[in-house]
Computed example of a mutant assay.
Amino acid sequence: MKKILVGVDGTEKSKKTSHIAADLINPESEVTLITVITEAVKEENIKERIKKVMDKEANFFKKRGIKVKKEIHYGHPAEIICNFAAENNFDLIILADKKDEKRSFLLGGTSDKVVRHAKQAVMVVK
C-alpha cells in the first residue's frame, strides 16, 4: 500500500490509531493525516488546536521515517474522508472506532459511514 489516509482528531483513540498505523505500514508509504471539523463545533481557536494536534501526530510519523502530509477540512467527516480518499487515489483509510458504548455492537457514526461508502479498503481501530 503506497498511499494511506489516517483520520486524526486528538483523542486517545485517534492517537492509538496513528501508532498502530505507523507499526503496520511500509516506511516507503506516503501518509496523509486528515481532520474534518464539523460546522457543529463552535469552539474558539479550533483550527489552531487542531493544527497543534496534527503537527504532533505528523512528527510521530516523521520520527519513524515516514513521509507525511496534513489536511484540515470543514464539513461532514465521512463524506469529506470518502471524497478526499477517492479524489486522491488512496489505497487505504485508517480510522478510530468512536462508537457510542450504548450501541456497542455498532461502529461509530463516521467510521461506519466510511466503511460503507469508501471505494478504498478501510481499517477501523478499536
Rank of each mutant, 00 (worst) to 15 (best):
T32I: 03
A86S: 12
K98R: 06
G10Y: 01
I34F: 00
S18A: 02
I25Q: 05
E79T: 14
H117M: 07
K126E: 12
M123D: 01
D97R: 00
K56N: 14
N83Q: 14
G109W: 00
G109D: 02
I93P: 07
S29Y: 02
I4R: 00
E28K: 01
S29W: 07
S111H: 10
R49M: 10
K119W: 07
D112Q: 10
A118F: 04
F84Y: 15
E71W: 06
L92A: 04
I46H: 05
K16S: 01
M123Q: 14
Y74T: 13
R116M: 03
F90V: 03
P77D: 08
K67S: 14
A58V: 09
H76S: 12
T32N: 12
K98E: 12
C82R: 02
I94W: 02
I25L: 03
R49H: 15
K99M: 12
I93S: 06
E87F: 03
T110F: 06
K56A: 01
K63N: 15
V41G: 00
I50D: 08
I4Q: 01
M123W: 10
L95R: 04
D91M: 04
G108V: 10
F60V: 01
K70L: 08
M1E: 13
F105W: 14
V6F: 05
E79P: 06
F105R: 05
K62M: 09
F105N: 12
K15D: 03
